[in-house]
Design a protein around this nucleic acid. Structure first.
Lengths: 156, 156
DNA sequence: AAACTATTTAAGAATTATTATTACCTAATA
DNA sequence: TATTAGGTAATAATAATTCTTAAATAGTTT
C-alpha cells in the first residue's frame, strides 16, 4: 500500500507521533509529494506546492522532505548532475531510470523480500532500506539514441 | 573479472581507443581508482593519488573520473549528504551501505543477470546499467545503534 | 478563551561538491 | 623536431542544499 492512499488524519498522526507539528505547510507538502509518483526533485515539489500554498519557501520544502524521510514516508534518490529525486514508494521495488529524459518509473520486484531476508539471515548487517535502479533509455528515448548518449545529453 | 586486474597496457589502450590521451595523470588516477574497492569519494581519490603524483589537481581527478565512467570502467554512486563515491566494480552486484560509518562492501548477486534479462525481454526499456544498494548498519556499527540513527549521526 | 513556549517558517546568507574557464603544457603523430 | 589537438593546474563560477535568525504559530496549559 502506498502511504498516499492514507488519509490526512494518518499523515498528521505520523508527524505528531514523532513530535513534529502538523503545520499547514507540512500538510500541503505531504499531500503533494505522497501522491506524485513521477519522483519529483525538491525544486519541482516547491513549484507544485506553491500553486496551492504560494507563500511557502524552498527551505521549508527541503526541511519537510527531510522529516518525511525520517518518518520513512518517502525515499531520497540522489543522482549525478546534482539532482536528488523523491519517491513515495518506500517498499522494495525497481526504479527504471531513463538517462535521456529523466523519467523514472517504478516496477514491482516481488523477489526482493526473499532476497533481503536471505541477506539478513546470512550476514550481520542490519537492513533498514534498499534502492534498486535500472538505468538506460525508455521506450520513447531508446529509438532516438542508438549509441550510448554522450554525457551532455543525459539528464541523470 | 575486475578491470583493475588488467594491465597498464589495457588501461592505456582503453583510453586511446576512445580518443583520450594516456597522460601520466590519468594513468595514476586509473591505477589508484581501479584497485580501490572501498568506493572512495573524489576527494579521497585526490588525496591518495597526490601521494604518488603531488602536483595533480582536483579538477583533473574529477575530469578523469568522468572519463572512466564514460569508458564504463567505474560506476558513479551519488549519495545524500552531497557525497558521490566511485566503484570499480561495474558488473551487477549489491552494495551493502552502512549509514553510520559510510563503509560500502560489494556482495555478489548472481540472480541479477536473469533479472535484467527478464526485464529486458518484457519491456521496451534498453538497459545500460544498474545499481543495487542495501542500506543499514554494518556488523561494527549495528551493535552501537539499537534504534535507527538520527540524521546527524549518519555519514550517508 | 488567553497565555505560554518550543517549534516552525520565510528569507536570505553560507556552504561545498562539482563544473567551467583559461593560459600554459604535452602526448601523439608526421 | 615540429606540429597541434587535447590535457593540466589553478582558480572562478555554479547551484543544490543547509544554516541562520527574527517573527509567527501549533499544541498545550492555565
Amino acid at each position: 500500500m502506498y502511504i498516499h492512499e492514507k488519509s490526512l488524519r494518518t499523515i498528521i498522526d505520523a508527524l505528531r507521533k514523532k513530535g513534529y507539528k502538523a503545520t499547514p505547510q507540512r500538510i500541503a507538502i505531504c499531500k503533494y509529494v505522497l501522491q506524485d509518483t513521477t519522483h519529483p526533485s525538491a525544486k519541482i515539489v516547491y513549484q507544485r506546492v506553491r500553486k496551492e500554498y504560494p507563500t511557502i519557501s524552498l527551505a521549508t520544502v527541503y526541511q519537510t522532505l527531510k522529516v518525511l524521510k525520517e518518518l520513512n514516508l518517502i525515499q531520497e534518490l540522489p543522482f549525478s548532475k546534482r539532482e536528488t529525486r523523491f519517491d513515495p514508494n518506500v517498499n522494495p521495488h525497481i526504479n527504471m531510470v531513463c538517462l535521456k529524459c529523466g523519467k523514472i518509473v517504478d516496477i514491482n520486484f516481488p523477489e526482493a523480500d526473499s532476497l533481503l531476508k536471505q541477506i539478513s539471515e546470512s550476514t550481520r548487517f542490519r537492513i533498514t532500506g534498499q534502492r534498486i535502479d535500472i538505468y538506460g533509455f525508455c521506450e520513447v528515448c531508446g529509438q532516438f539514441s542508438i549509441s550510448i548518449a554522450k554525457n551532455k545529453e543525459k539528464m541523470l
